[in-house]
Computed example of a mutant assay.
Amino acid sequence: MTNKNSPLAVAVFDIDGVIRDVGGSYRRALADTVENFTDGSYRPTPHDIDRLKSEGLWNNDWEASQEFIYRFFESKGHSRNELKLNYDNIVAFFQSRYRGADPDNWSGYICHEPLLVELKYWDNLTDSGISWGFFSGATRASASYVLEQRLGLRSPTLVAMEDAPGKPDPTGLFKTIESLGLKANELASPIFYAGDTVADMHTVNKAKSLFPQQTWIAVGVLPPHTQENVGTREAYIQTLIDAGASTVLSNIQELSPEKIQSLLESKV
């Protein structure tokens, strides 16, 4: 990164729903998993998934799958204790859909995820003196696959599922900043975090509570499935704003150096 000691700003990005469209991959695998473990009795809709994630607790899609299964059986009069769900089995089934049956040669839904950003976007940030990296709840293998193999980035700064507690815990956000050679509690430059969920916005809120002297800006991004009709789009925008977003964008590439500068000026 250029001018690492005093960048114009630091921009950290979520991946799912921001860098890649996971509507037909992670979300499809989630629905498949719930349907399988409820014996075909329930398959969550995109609206169901959004509603669960709006609670701000279910950034991890394996845990979200389990929660859906629990809630389905609770609605039928069963208690969680009597169900004895095997989390490892849930994860294994999910991964068989998302990555494919062979863990070494991926052939699942991940192979067909549309990208939501072009490679030149990152060059533009770097050329403008903006340091950047990624903090994602995806596994490192999945995140690296999209960033390096699909998008073409070379050894990007990445903090993934295995590296930090799940969002909204801000530890991974701080680790990303540190991996860029910076310190969140000593940095004069403002820090942006861009994500598509309530948990992402809450991550910034928690970072602010720990380092209130720092300028933190939460940027909401509309995942593609929320832009299919005006009503869904507007509702999702409001959900992200209510959770703490300073602005909500239709595509992450709208977070240009010029947009970053305008957001900074609005904070003055």
Rank of each mutant, 00 (worst) to 15 (best):
M1W: 07
T2I: 14
S6G: 14
L8Y: 09
A9Q: 05
A9P: 12
A9E: 07
V10Q: 05
A11H: 02
R20G: 05
D21H: 15
G23T: 15
G24Q: 08
A31C: 04
A31V: 04
A31W: 00
T33M: 03
E35R: 04
T38N: 09
S41L: 13
Y42W: 12
P44F: 00
P44Y: 01
I49Y: 00
D50T: 02
R51D: 14
S54C: 09
N59M: 09
N60I: 04
D61H: 04
E63F: 10
E67I: 03
F68Q: 00
F68C: 01
Y70E: 08
R71W: 04
E74R: 11
S75C: 11
S79N: 06
R80F: 13
N81G: 10
N89E: 10
V91G: 06
A92G: 14
S96W: 03
R97N: 03
G100W: 00
P103V: 01
P103G: 05
D104V: 02
D104W: 15
S107H: 11
G108A: 01
Y109P: 07
H112N: 15
H112P: 06
E113Y: 05
E113F: 02
L116Q: 11
V117C: 10
Y121F: 15
N124D: 13
L125E: 01
T126P: 09
S128K: 05
I130V: 05
I130H: 03
W132L: 10
G133R: 06
F135L: 12
G137W: 02
A141R: 15
S142L: 13
A143S: 08
L147M: 03
E148S: 11
G152P: 09
R154A: 10
L158C: 10
V159I: 08
M161V: 07
D163M: 12
K167L: 07
D169W: 06
T171G: 09
F174N: 07
I177D: 06
I177S: 03
I177N: 02
K183F: 10
A184N: 07
N185I: 06
N185R: 13
E186Y: 11
L187S: 12
A188G: 15
P190D: 11
F192C: 01
F192Q: 11
A194N: 08
G195S: 15
T197E: 09
V198T: 08
D200E: 07
S209Q: 10
L210R: 14
T215N: 10
W216M: 02
V219S: 00
V221H: 15
V221S: 06
L222Q: 05
P224K: 14
N229W: 15
V230T: 09
V230S: 10
R233S: 10
R233T: 10
R233E: 11
Q238A: 15
T239P: 02
I241S: 09
I241V: 12
D242N: 14
A243V: 05
V248K: 11
S250V: 08
L255W: 01
L264V: 11
L264C: 13
V268T: 15
